[in-house]
Design a protein around this nucleic acid. Structure first.
Lengths: 122, 122
DNA sequence: AAGCTATTTCAAAGCTATTTGAAACCACAA
DNA sequence: TTGTGGTTTCAAATAGCTTTGAAATAGCTT
């Protein structure tokens, strides 16, 4: 069925898994993959990673984040919206202030990355 | 020192943590944040997430990945290089073939995302 | 060496993400 | 209701990522 040359070291294992089609068929559903991508995109900029960690240590209003980083409000607001889209942070209103804090997922991500991600070789 | 209005619900906690400067000073180092960003970027495209999961199930040469997805070689090669830059996959040469497989970090990421990332509300 | 296959690299094109400053919005106080 | 502070939204400009096909590289076989 797989009319393709396959290196010996792989052919056997691959056939045991149903060939290319078997692998393709066992991949996570597109919805699941989309969710992962959304989270990853939210973390794909150093500004946002910093903000997530900061909020993990202490929920803050936008003005504090702005004071802490020196960025413009509109810039901070944009990055917060990306973090929100990824489901990593959310906000509650308190008087005039919007206080951002990490979601459950945001906290798990912060904990996990703090411990796990490191430059690594092959 | 923090000459800024701060909502009451936060002022106390924040001062206990050394104020804005205290939080900023406890953030992970730039190198660490850069490493996280690199991993996140690698996962920020559905093609790459799919490829990582596929390789997690079965190490494969590029021609198999191409056969499985229908993408052009140059496209697959580009995405593999981004995954490699993020430290999520690496390759061994076998005759004419390059066989890609997940690194340790790649495997941990695949396991973790499979279980953890999901669309979530506030 | 020549020819073949597997893969990467390159540059141009198209597309998406980010930054910026100005304007709009919203909750509260006067 | 008008004013004020905190925040978001918008549009234009910029920067960065992804796709494409063609050309280059690298290992095998003859």
């Amino acid at each position: 069925m797989d009319a393709i040359e396959i290196p010996d070291s792989i052919r056997c294992d691959l056939e045991g898994k149903g060939g290319i089609a078997g692998i393709a068929g066992s991949l996570p559903a597109d919805r699941k993959i989309g969710a992962i991508v959304l989270v990853a995109r939210a973390l794909s900029d150093p500004v946002r990673v910093k903000v997530l960690f900061a909020l993990f240590m202490q929920p803050m209003c936008v003005c504090l984040l702005v004071a802490m980083t020196g960025y413009a409000y509109s810039k901070m607001s944009y990055h917060l919206s990306v973090l929100k889209d990824g489901g990593l942070v959310c906000a509650r209103q308190e008087g005039n202030y919007l206080i951002y804090y990490p979601t459950d997922l945001g906290r798990r991500v912060a904990l996990w990355t703090r411990v796990t991600a490191h430059p690594n070789r092959c």
